[in-house]
């Protein structure tokens, strides 16, 4: 089975293309591997994650999720670009720009919280999503993964927060 990974290094970015020898599962594995949260997960386990992932497309300008929304998914951008936007009562800030391979919204996997920011597609995009239930089911099935994944997730949250705080200093107003 391992022969597949080697043949589709370039699949990211053209994942839905006509890679005939690679199934969607293997493409998903490849995408997940490049995300730090999943990078340490052994291949066999990663395949289970890949199986439960789903793909979705958004059109340019559409919101992937809205601030304040209760959403139970984490996203990886496969194709296109998007903006992370923090909205206040009368104006919005562009916090961050997302590119293929970026992982976002991961907090939803850990807890049922409302979105702290919105994400909007700036081009037509394709994302890979995984929902909380699937994520947790896998962790329950393979408890040895918990520590590894949680460490990375918490690291991300901390960095994210740091970045957010930093951004707020040089607020960049849109509209």
């Amino acid at each position: 089975m391992s022969s597949y990974e080697d043949t589709n290094r370039e699949s990211l970015g053209s994942a839905s293309g006509s890679m005939e020898c690679a199934c969607e599962l293997d493409q998903n594995v490849e995408i997940l591997r490049r995300v730090d949260v999943f990078a340490g997960v052994p291949l066999e386990r990663l395949k289970v994650y890949a199986l439960l992932c789903k793909r979705r497309r958004f059109e340019k300008g559409q919101f992937i999720f809205q601030q304040g929304e209760a959403d139970d998914k984490a996203y990886i951008l496969i194709q296109g670009t998007a903006q992370v936007i923090r909205q206040y009562e009368d104006h919005s800030f562009l916090v961050h720009e997302l590119h293929p391979g970026d992982f976002f919204g991961g907090l939803a996997l850990l807890a049922d919280v409302k979105r702290l920011f919105a994400v909007r597609a700036t081009t037509d995009v394709e994302v890979l999503t995984i929902d909380r239930e699937s994520f947790r089911k896998i962790l329950r099935q393979f408890p040895e993964l918990v520590e590894k994944i949680l460490d990375v997730m918490i690291g991300r949250i901390v960095r994210m927060e740091e970045k957010l705080l930093e951004r707020h200093i040089h607020e960049c107003v849109i509209q």
């Binding site: 599962l25 066999e44 395949k47 289970v48 199986l51 439960l52 239930e133 699937s134 089911k137 099935q141």
Partner: peptide
């Protein structure tokens, strides 16, 4: 089969 072989007890997968 190899993908799901350790998960036989949870219909979710």
């Amino acid at each position: 089969v190899p993908l799901l072989s350790d998960l036989g007890d949870d219909p979710f997968f």
